[in-house]
């Protein structure tokens, strides 16, 4: 009996604890979700994702543009991960962002040190 009670209490405890924890729903990104031009809210920073998986970032306050960007990359998606790959001074660099929300007009993603919201242009 005691063993059964202990088992039941433990099970309930586990269930309770599991139930307390909110389920995290991971996005399954597709190329079309991301393709387009996005502006980081509160800034003049733009991120362009082309359908050929190339992209660039440009800050219009600094005089950059889609034709004259400050940063080029190749992008890909996997699950909720948005990956940027580039070479800097010959060194391959990969940045991976976790997209927490996405719609046809906005995106929220976790970057290296903060989470940002972007609006599709």
């Amino acid at each position: 009996m005691n063993k059964a009670k202990i088992f039941i209490v433990a099970a309930l405890a586990v269930m309770l604890l599991a139930g307390c924890k909110k389920d995290k729903v991971s996005l399954n990104l597709s190329d079309s979700d991301v393709t387009g031009t996005w502006k980081k809210d509160g800034t003049s920073e733009y991120w362009l994702y082309r359908s050929d998986h190339t992209g660039c970032k440009y800050n219009t306050d600094e005089g950059f543009s889609e034709d004259f960007p400050s940063y080029d990359y190749e992008w890909s998606v996997s699950g909720d991960q948005l990956r940027h790959e580039t070479y800097e001074q010959g060194v391959p660099i990969t940045r991976t962002y976790t997209v927490t929300e996405i719609s046809s007009t906005s995106m929220e993603r976790e970057e290296e040190v903060a989470t940002y919201k972007l609006t599709k242009i």
């Binding site: 920073e45 970032k57 440009y58 800050n59 600094e62 005089g63 950059f64 400050s70 940063y71 800097e88 001074q89």
Partner: peptide, 18 residues
């Protein structure tokens, strides 16, 4: 490497280096 503006101030979004 970076781009600079006309006052030689770095355009930080283009800055890359080590």
């Amino acid at each position: 490497s970076t781009y600079l503006n006309a006052r030689y101030e770095p355009l930080m979004s283009s800055l890359r280096g080590a």
